Amino acid sequence: KELVLVLYDYQEKSPREVTVKKGDILTLLNSTNKDWWKVEVDDSQGFIPAAYLKKL
């Protein structure tokens, strides 16, 4: 599985998104959309702007 590093805090703005903190390491589930990547946070899944993430 691929991991990503969160570069900036992000507060979810819709139920399909997730809240993350700078420095979090998350599992990347889908990066086919260049603007929004799907990640797994704890036991939930959701989208975060790709610009907030860096592949490890």
Rank of each mutant, 00 (worst) to 15 (best):
1 K>G: 09
1 K>W: 10
1 K>H: 11
1 K>E: 10
1 K>R: 14
1 K>N: 10
2 E>W: 11
2 E>F: 11
2 E>Q: 14
2 E>A: 11
2 E>D: 11
2 E>Y: 10
2 E>S: 12
2 E>M: 13
2 E>T: 13
3 L>I: 07
3 L>T: 07
3 L>S: 06
3 L>Q: 11
4 V>A: 07
4 V>T: 02
4 V>E: 00
4 V>R: 00
5 L>F: 07
5 L>N: 01
5 L>S: 03
5 L>Y: 09
5 L>R: 06
6 V>I: 03
6 V>E: 00
6 V>S: 01
6 V>Y: 01
6 V>W: 02
7 L>G: 00
7 L>H: 01
7 L>W: 02
7 L>Q: 03
7 L>N: 01
7 L>E: 02
8 Y>E: 12
8 Y>C: 15
8 Y>W: 12
8 Y>A: 13
8 Y>M: 13
8 Y>T: 07
8 Y>S: 09
8 Y>Q: 14
8 Y>D: 08
9 D>M: 03
9 D>C: 04
9 D>F: 04
9 D>V: 03
9 D>L: 02
10 Y>E: 01
10 Y>R: 03
10 Y>A: 01
10 Y>N: 01
11 Q>K: 13
11 Q>R: 11
11 Q>C: 12
11 Q>V: 14
11 Q>H: 13
11 Q>W: 13
11 Q>N: 14
11 Q>F: 14
11 Q>P: 05
12 E>M: 15
12 E>D: 06
12 E>V: 15
12 E>P: 14
12 E>L: 15
12 E>I: 15
12 E>R: 15
12 E>S: 15
13 K>E: 08
13 K>Q: 13
13 K>H: 09
13 K>I: 07
13 K>P: 05
14 S>T: 11
14 S>I: 06
14 S>F: 10
14 S>R: 09
14 S>Q: 07
14 S>P: 09
14 S>N: 12
14 S>C: 12
14 S>D: 11
14 S>E: 09
15 P>A: 12
15 P>S: 11
15 P>M: 08
15 P>Q: 09
15 P>H: 10
16 R>H: 13
16 R>V: 10
16 R>D: 12
16 R>F: 14
16 R>K: 11
16 R>W: 15
16 R>N: 14
17 E>F: 08
17 E>M: 08
17 E>S: 10
17 E>T: 09
17 E>K: 09
18 V>I: 14
18 V>Q: 04
18 V>T: 06
18 V>K: 07
18 V>R: 05
18 V>N: 03
18 V>M: 13
19 T>I: 06
19 T>N: 08
19 T>M: 07
19 T>P: 02
19 T>E: 04
19 T>G: 05
19 T>V: 06
20 V>T: 04
20 V>I: 05
20 V>H: 03
20 V>K: 01
20 V>S: 02
20 V>F: 06
20 V>L: 05
21 K>G: 04
21 K>S: 09
21 K>D: 02
21 K>L: 06
21 K>M: 07
21 K>I: 06
21 K>R: 13
22 K>A: 13
22 K>M: 07
22 K>N: 04
22 K>H: 05
22 K>E: 07
22 K>W: 04
22 K>Q: 10
23 G>E: 02
23 G>A: 02
23 G>R: 02
23 G>V: 01
23 G>C: 07
23 G>D: 05
23 G>N: 05
23 G>P: 01
24 D>L: 07
24 D>V: 07
24 D>A: 12
24 D>H: 07
25 I>W: 03
25 I>A: 01
25 I>C: 05
25 I>P: 00
25 I>H: 03
25 I>E: 02
25 I>F: 04
25 I>D: 00
25 I>M: 05
26 L>C: 13
26 L>Y: 04
26 L>V: 11
26 L>H: 05
26 L>N: 00
26 L>F: 03
26 L>P: 00
27 T>A: 09
27 T>L: 13
27 T>G: 06
27 T>V: 15
27 T>N: 09
27 T>R: 13
27 T>C: 11
28 L>G: 00
28 L>R: 00
28 L>F: 02
28 L>Q: 01
28 L>C: 08
28 L>I: 04
28 L>P: 00
28 L>V: 05
29 L>K: 04
29 L>M: 06
29 L>R: 03
29 L>W: 04
29 L>E: 01
29 L>P: 00
29 L>I: 14
30 N>Q: 11
30 N>Y: 06
30 N>G: 06
30 N>M: 08
30 N>T: 07
31 S>W: 10
31 S>M: 08
31 S>P: 05
31 S>D: 14
31 S>G: 11
32 T>S: 14
32 T>A: 11
32 T>K: 10
32 T>V: 10
32 T>W: 09
33 N>H: 11
33 N>T: 06
33 N>K: 06
33 N>D: 14
33 N>Y: 07
34 K>E: 10
34 K>M: 09
34 K>D: 12
34 K>Y: 07
34 K>C: 10
34 K>G: 09
35 D>K: 14
35 D>A: 10
35 D>Y: 15
35 D>V: 14
36 W>G: 01
36 W>V: 05
36 W>C: 10
36 W>T: 03
36 W>L: 05
37 W>K: 00
37 W>H: 02
37 W>E: 00
37 W>L: 01
37 W>Y: 04
37 W>V: 02
37 W>N: 01
37 W>R: 01
38 K>N: 06
38 K>V: 14
38 K>Q: 14
38 K>W: 13
38 K>Y: 15
39 V>G: 00
39 V>K: 00
39 V>A: 01
39 V>P: 00
40 E>M: 12
40 E>H: 06
40 E>T: 07
40 E>R: 10
40 E>Q: 14
40 E>C: 14
41 V>A: 10
41 V>Q: 07
41 V>T: 15
41 V>H: 11
41 V>C: 08
41 V>W: 08
41 V>R: 11
41 V>I: 12
41 V>G: 08
41 V>P: 00
41 V>E: 01
41 V>D: 05
42 D>L: 12
42 D>K: 13
42 D>S: 11
42 D>H: 13
43 D>C: 13
43 D>T: 11
43 D>H: 12
43 D>W: 06
43 D>F: 10
43 D>R: 10
43 D>M: 10
44 S>V: 15
44 S>H: 15
44 S>R: 15
44 S>F: 14
44 S>I: 15
44 S>E: 12
44 S>N: 13
45 Q>W: 15
45 Q>K: 09
45 Q>R: 10
45 Q>E: 13
46 G>H: 15
46 G>A: 15
46 G>V: 15
46 G>M: 15
46 G>F: 15
46 G>E: 10
46 G>C: 15
47 F>G: 02
47 F>N: 04
47 F>M: 08
47 F>E: 04
47 F>T: 04
48 I>H: 01
48 I>Q: 01
48 I>Y: 02
48 I>E: 01
48 I>C: 14
48 I>G: 02
48 I>V: 15
48 I>A: 13
48 I>W: 02
48 I>T: 03
49 P>N: 04
49 P>A: 03
49 P>L: 05
49 P>C: 06
49 P>H: 04
49 P>Y: 04
49 P>R: 05
50 A>N: 03
50 A>V: 07
50 A>W: 03
50 A>Q: 05
50 A>G: 04
50 A>K: 07
50 A>L: 03
51 A>F: 12
51 A>M: 12
51 A>H: 13
51 A>Y: 12
51 A>Q: 12
52 Y>K: 04
52 Y>G: 06
52 Y>N: 08
53 L>S: 03
53 L>G: 05
53 L>Q: 00
53 L>Y: 02
53 L>I: 06
53 L>V: 13
53 L>W: 02
53 L>F: 02
54 K>T: 09
54 K>M: 13
54 K>V: 13
54 K>F: 11
54 K>Q: 14
54 K>N: 05
54 K>H: 11
55 K>F: 07
55 K>P: 11
55 K>W: 06
56 L>V: 10
56 L>T: 05
56 L>D: 02
56 L>S: 03
56 L>W: 07
56 L>Y: 07
56 L>H: 05
56 L>A: 04
